[in-house]
Structures are given as structure tokens and as C-alpha cells.
């Protein structure tokens, strides 16, 4: 187990490095002078003085390799540089907002698993029946509706019309736990919806496959009742591939967070990101993109480890 975890951590670190390099390269691979590009708007040529200033500010006048070395060196002690707009260091802002985004993602993942796995199992058990058709239809609808449409509709119905919860915002947990949770509910549910649909589809396919396995017949031959068979010998085994897909879907999930945070005024990373992109504050955008990507890699690492706990064979293979 220890060797397996060590290997996974190593792979995760390599991924972090690769992603950082890719992000660095994007600016330099786009044809044209980076500083000019960042200042260009429409067809008007940017002011040469401003370009020169930006160039020296971002260190773009140094050789590319030197820039890369400095970039990586800064990253190793989590230094994301300073904002172009107000010269404030970026790292503290990230540290403040990251936990809020993380909270949303975790809440959504928990909601999606709690609903998606049982519904997916039900759909597989009633394969071909009306309940399976209904669940599959709902899943397709959930997958096709963009999160910002769902979020906006929830605000319209629950905040504007029914007035049950406020339209959005944020209160720290320590200040008022109840209000914190009530504000968390809508954005978390919104992010969870498409993820639930994915979980339903995956669980259904996976359960159908496990139901065909010999060991399920053994479980029946033991005289076990349906409940224990489904829980211990079907769902438990079916979860392994579902977890993997959860990892692959993390990217879309985190992307969805950006939109949902915006809809509900949740002060996570994304409001920050949207403002940074609007202002075309490159260092800020890079900082946020990197932190979210690292988060993505980290979550996948956790999923790999969960995988090994669920399926003892994994530790030996690979």
C-alpha cells in the first residue's frame, strides 16, 4: 500500500509540473508578442509605452528559459507573483478563497454520490422497467441543462418566488453555521446535478455488469437475501469503476464551479477569476488556473487511493 501511494504521489507531482509548464507555454505559444496581445483590444494598436512597461513588469524582456526557471522556482514556494492591477501579492487571496471553492466541490460530490449511486443501482435492478426509463430520462435532462441555467432557475423559484432562501452570498461558518449551510445548499445542489446524472449512468452500467458476474450467483447460492447481495456483492464491486469516472469528471465539475459561484455570488476562486479575466490580469489568471488544476490533480490522487482501498487487487497491479 505504501509503495502504491508513494508512486501515485510521484505521478501527481509530475502532473503538477507538466500542467505548470503547459500554462507557462500557452502565453509563449500564441503567435505575437505577449505584452502586445495582453493589451490589445479590438483593432486598435496598444500604446507602445504601456507595452514596454508591461513587458518589464512581467519579466517578458528576459530570455524565455530564464523566465521559465524563475516561474518554476517561485511556484516551488507557492509564490504566484503580484497582480498587475494593484500590485497585491496573489497567494494570500488564493489561500482565502480556495477553501470556499473546495467546500462547494466536496458538498456537491457528497450529494451526487448519495443520490446517484442508489438511483443508478435502482435503474440497473429495474432495467427495462418504467422506473429505469424515468431515471434515465431525468439523467439525460440533467446532463443537457447547463449549470448556470439550473442555478438561475433555482434562484428564480426559491429566492424570488417562494422566498425560502436568499438568492446567494456567503457567511463564514464560524459566524452563523445555519445561515452558512442554507447559503451553501443551492450552489452545491446546482453543481451536484450534472454530476449526479453521470453517477447514475455509470452506476447503472457498472451494476448491470456486476450482476452478470459469477460471484453474484455464489452470493445467491449462499442463501443471502436481496438486500445484502445488492449491497455487499453488487454495489460494493460496482463502485470501483464509478469512482474512476468521478475522477475523470472532476475537470468538468470544477469548471462548473466557476459558473455556479458566479450565479450565487459565492466568493470562491471563480469570482476572482472572472474579474481577473475581464481585467486581463495575466498573473492573477495564471495563479487561479494553477491552483484549481493542482486541486484537480490532488482530487484525482485521493480517488486513486480510494480505488486501492475499494479493490485490493489494485495495489499489486501496475
Amino acid at each position: 500500500m505504501l509503495r502504491y501511494v508513494a508512486l501515485r504521489v510521484l505521478i501527481a507531482l509530475v502532473l503538477v509540473w507538466l500542467v505548470s509548464t503547459l500554462v507557462f507555454l500557452v502565453l509563449h505559444l500564441v503567435p505575437g508578442d505577449p505584452a502586445e496581445l495582453l493589451l490589445s483590444a479590438g483593432n486598435t494598436a496598444p500604446d507602445p509605452e504601456a507595452v514596454a512597461q508591461l513587458r518589464s513588469q512581467m519579466g517578458l524582456d528576459r530570455p524565455v528559459l530564464a523566465q521559465y526557471a524563475a516561474y518554476i522556482a517561485d511556484l516551488t514556494h507557492l509564490d504566484f507573483g503580484v497582480s498587475l492591477r494593484d500590485q497585491n501579492p496573489i497567494a494570500p487571496e488564493l489561500a482565502l478563497r480556495l477553501p470556499r471553492t473546495l467546500e462547494l466541490i466536496l458538498a456537491a460530490a457528497v450529494i451526487a454520490s448519495l443520490i446517484g449511486v442508489p438511483l443508478g443501482t435502482l435503474a440497473a435492478m429495474r432495467d427495462g422497467g418504467w422506473s429505469e426509463k424515468l431515471v434515465s430520462l431525468l439523467a439525460s435532462a440533467a446532463l443537457s441543462t447547463p449549470v448556470f441555467v439550473v442555478g438561475t432557475t433555482l434562484v428564480l423559484v426559491f429566492a424570488q418566488w417562494l422566498g425560502w432562501i436568499s438568492a446567494g452570498g456567503y457567511v463564514p461558518l464560524a459566524e452563523d453555521p445555519l445561515r452558512h449551510l442554507s447559503l451553501l445548499a443551492m450552489p452545491a445542489v446546482t453543481i451536484a446535478l450534472p454530476l449526479t446524472a453521470v453517477m447514475i449512468r455509470m452506476t447503472r452500467a457498472s451494476v448491470l455488469e456486476v450482476l452478470e458476474k459469477d460471484h453474484v450467483r455464489t452470493a445467491r447460492a449462499k442463501g443471502l437475501a436481496r438486500g445484502p447481495i445488492i449491497r455487499r456483492h453488487v454495489v460494493r464491486n460496482a463502485l470501483v469503476p464509478v469512482i474512476t469516472v468521478l475522477g475523470l469528471e472532476m475537470g468538468t465539475l470544477i469548471g462548473g464551479t466557476v459558473l455556479v459561484e458566479y450565479v450565487f455570488n459565492w466568493p470562491g476562486l471563480s469570482g476572482y477569476l472572472v474579474r481577473a479575466v475581464e481585467a486581463r490580469d495575466y498573473p492573477e489568471v495564471v495563479g487561479i488556473v494553477l491552483v484549481i488544476s493542482f486541486l484537480f490533480v490532488l482530487l484525482n490522487l485521493l480517488i486513486d487511493i480510494t480505488y486501492a482501498v475499494l479493490d485490493p487487487r489494485v495495489k499489486l497491479a501496475k
Partner: peptide, 20 residues
């Protein structure tokens, strides 16, 4: 395949920052 490690929406936003 490295591109796959980046959440899709984020990469798009990075490009938009550069190109407008």
C-alpha cells in the same frame, strides 16, 4: 494529454485573457 489535466473552462479562460 497534458491538456486533459486542465479543467476545460479554465484553459479557455486562460486563452481569453491573452487574446481578449
Amino acid at each position: 494529454e497534458i491538456v486533459i489535466c486542465l479543467p476545460p473552462l479554465l484553459l479557455a479562460m486562460l486563452v481569453i485573457t491573452i487574446l481578449g
